[in-house]
Nucleic acid binder design. Structure first.
Length: 501
RNA sequence: CGCGGGGUAGAGCAGUGGUAGCUCGUCAGGCUCAUAACCUGAAGGUCGUGAGUUCGAAUCUCACCCCCGCAACCA
């Protein structure tokens, strides 16, 4: 019995700096979706990676007195650290400097594009800053940053990709209803397309850009970012060296990206795939940017937030909760230390943590640490429908919120049923009420798994249950009411989220 | 100039024609199983501005103001 496959990717981190909180957000969104799909019985392939070529990466290495390869190795290492600290369940990590795994695909795609007449030698004309030795945009050239630097307009021979040729087809692709989330971004792209697409540079002269994938058949040119970076999504799954694997996983079910690189994923990438005769990814999930106390995060403002430091301070699941719940899945969000503490204390410590704590303490006191009998029908019903709709619609923030709503209902249920009074008058009824509470915690532990896997495990341990094994999870069975059996031995209770001041 | 998004209680947001909602925070009360947690209740908004359509508009139309993003080769 083959499981249905699910292929999800993040963008690849541009290696001119160590990973930032925005990349953490992207990893987490993809991780929550990947974990959810595994619970539902999918064979999930979850790819992330690093984009390690380009002038800026090269310059950054030189600036630090390091060989480019040494520098990108360090960045890749720090991505690995972030992945581990965030508890990301990726199955693979691709690096664009990987000459065995990645280069053959980038070059094969290039050759196909050439064979189809979609890449031809042409002229690039644009702005170039001599001081920075960097290509810049028109907007940048006119900005203050370059006012005192020497900016020239240059023309050079580049291989150009005939994007303009795909204008009509791209319009049709963009009009597919769920191709891009949120949908308003489709309009942005359509406007852009309708304004007319020009061809784009796919290579640079080697003397300007040496750190990159060589263009097949032309020693004087090196691939520019698009044909190099975008092809990571297929090189990792064996486009060249493992056709069976490629056939199994392509097309991607979801590309998770930031709004800053939508154009490349919504236009360049589909055009390239169309040209080489491959089907298109099914969906692009576009998240926003994280602001820091309402301001753009930037090194010059000194308000950059390091995700690893946050984990050190608050613990991994608190960071996961903040980024997945407080940052709107499809929009910009704000990071604020004050807000973080509020959220931690109210949602995690007071609502969720305290709920678990009070239920387990009562079970210990009133039921001898064993699951009591359930004598009535369900009276604390988990709303799987709401949760599942949000999950399937990739509304992660709303899905997580719905779990917290259940937590809140649990707290109300306790206050309404007052076990501490009932135990004096109707001990049987107490057992039944506690069954409702314990079983509802079991259900919550499942709902929490995609978002807060460690917390899910810890709740289950307290219930005397095994951690969730996503690859052998019977979704229908496990989400049915009544999984906890009478007489089952509960585990040791513990504080999930100590209150912080 | 243009295109897109947005302006709703102290903060963050939901709400697309019919008596303004949610979360956090604040204040008061209740409870004591619990991490001084939890539950209940209250205060707090002329829904950016002006005009129009309508029996009735946060919700539709028009004009205007403000914020953010995009505006072609920056990941």
């Amino acid at each position: 019995m083959d499981k249905p496959k699910f292929y999800i990717t993040t963008s690849i981190l541009y290696s001119n700096a160590k990973p930032h909180i925005g990349f953490a957000l992207e990893l987490l969104q993809a991780d929550a979706i990947a974990r959810w799909k595994r619970l539902q019985g999918h064979d999930v392939y979850f790819l992330t990676g690093t984009d390690e070529h380009g002038v800026k990466v090269y310059d950054k290495a030189i600036e630090q007195g390091k060989a480019p390869q040494t520098w990108v190795d360090e960045v890749a290492e720090s991505v690995q650290t972030l992945i581990q600290r965030l508890n990301i369940s990726n199955t693979d990590l691709i690096r664009t400097t990987d000459q065995k795994r990645h280069w053959p695909t980038a070059q094969r795609v290039w050759e196909k594009l050439v064979a189809n007449g979609d890449i031809e030698m042409g002229h690039y004309s644009g702005y170039y800053c001599v001081n920075d030795e960097a290509y810049i945009t028109k907007t940048e050239a006119e900005s203050l940053e370059y006012a005192n630097k020497k900016v020239i307009q240059l023309e050079e021979d580049n291989y150009m990709f005939k994007l303009g040729k795909y204008q009509d087809r791209l319009t049709k692709i963009l009009e597919q209803p769920t191709f891009i989330l949120p949908t308003h971004r489709v309009k942005e792209m359509l406007n852009f397309v309708n304004a007319g697409l020009t061809d784009i540079s796919f290579s640079r002269p080697k003397e300007k850009l040496s750190w990159g994938v060589p263009v097949p058949g032309d020693d004087s040119q090196v691939m520019y970012v698009w044909p190099d970076a975008l092809t990571n999504y297929i090189s990792a799954i064996g486009y060249v060296d493992n056709p069976a694997k490629f056939k199994k996983y392509w097309p991607a079910d979801v590309h998770v990206i930031g709004k800053d690189i939508l154009r490349f994923h919504a236009l360049f990438w589909p055009a390239m795939l169309t040209s080489i005769g491959e089907v298109l990814p099914k969906q692009i999930l576009v998240h926003g940017h994280i602001l820091s106390d309402g301001q753009k995060m930037s090194k010059s403002f000194g308000n950059v937030v390091d995700p690893v430091e946050l984990i050190d301070r608050w613990g991994v699941d608190a960071v996961r909760y903040y980024l997945l719940r407080e940052i709107p899945t499809l929009g910009d969000g704000d990071y604020s230390a004050i807000r973080f503490e509020e959220i931690y204390n109210s949602a995690l410590a007071n609502d969720l943590g305290n709920l678990v704590s009070r239920i387990l303490m009562m079970a210990e006191k009133y039921c001898g640490d064993k699951v009591p009998a359930s004598v009535s029908s369900v009276s604390l019903n988990p709303s799987w429908g709401v949760y599942q709709n949000h999950m399937d619609g990739l509304e992660l923030d709303a899905a997580l919120q719905s779990v917290l709503t259940m937590v809140s209902e649990g707290n109300k249920y306790i206050d309404t049923t007052k076990p501490w009074e009932l135990v004096k008058t109707q001990p049987d009824a107490v057992g039944n009420d506690l069954y409702q509470m314990l079983e509802s915690l079991r259900q919550i532990s499942i709902m929490l798994y995609p978002f807060l896997p460690t917390t899910s495990d810890r709740i289950r341990r307290q219930l005397g249950l095994e951690p969730i094994n996503p690859d052998a999870f019977d979704f229908v069975k496990e989400t049915q009411w009544g999984g906890l059996l009478e007489g089952h031995q509960l585990g040791q209770s513990e504080i999930l989220f100590p209150k912080q001041n």
